[in-house]
Simulated scan of single mutants.
Amino acid sequence: MRIDKFLKVSRIIKRRTLASEACDREKVFINGRVAKPGSQVKEGDIVEIRFGEHVTRFRVLKTTEHAKKEESADMYELL
């Protein structure tokens, strides 16, 4: 699954366009490497998002095309 879509479906970032912009600005990393909006993410990957001084790290637990609000938190685990 594309990282920009994963960030939107999991509700980590509210809109896919914002997720794409974060990737374009090199704020998103997958397993320590800068992620482009089309970079593929799979179960077990470690994703890091940097916004200013705030850094969020999480492990991808599952990738699904659609998720209800209640299910979206089950897609990742904060580290």
Rank of each mutant, 00 (worst) to 15 (best):
M1Y: 05
M1P: 01
R2D: 04
I3C: 10
I3V: 11
I3P: 05
D4W: 07
F6E: 04
L7S: 09
L7R: 05
K8C: 11
K8H: 10
V9A: 00
V9G: 08
R11Q: 01
I12G: 06
I12T: 00
K14W: 01
R15M: 04
R15T: 12
T17Q: 07
T17L: 06
T17W: 04
L18G: 01
L18S: 03
L18H: 04
L18Q: 13
L18R: 02
L18Y: 11
S20F: 01
C23E: 03
D24M: 04
D24C: 01
D24Q: 00
R25V: 00
E26K: 14
E26C: 10
E26H: 06
K27H: 06
V28P: 00
I30G: 01
N31C: 09
V34S: 13
A35C: 06
P37A: 09
G38M: 07
G38W: 00
G38R: 04
S39K: 07
S39M: 10
Q40N: 14
V41Q: 06
K42I: 12
K42T: 08
E43F: 09
E43N: 08
G44Y: 08
G44I: 11
G44W: 12
D45T: 01
D45Y: 10
I46M: 15
I46W: 09
E48K: 15
E48P: 14
I49V: 14
R50D: 05
R50Y: 08
F51Y: 11
G52L: 14
E53S: 15
H54K: 15
H54N: 14
V55A: 12
V55Y: 13
T56Q: 11
T56E: 12
R57L: 15
F58T: 07
R59L: 14
V60N: 07
V60K: 02
L61G: 07
T64G: 05
E65P: 04
E65A: 11
H66T: 13
H66Y: 11
A67K: 10
K68E: 11
K68Q: 10
K68M: 09
K68A: 13
K69R: 04
K69G: 02
E70P: 00
E70S: 13
E71M: 14
E71S: 04
E71A: 09
E71Y: 00
A73F: 15
A73Q: 11
D74F: 13
D74M: 07
M75Y: 08
L79V: 12
L79D: 09
L79P: 07
L79I: 12
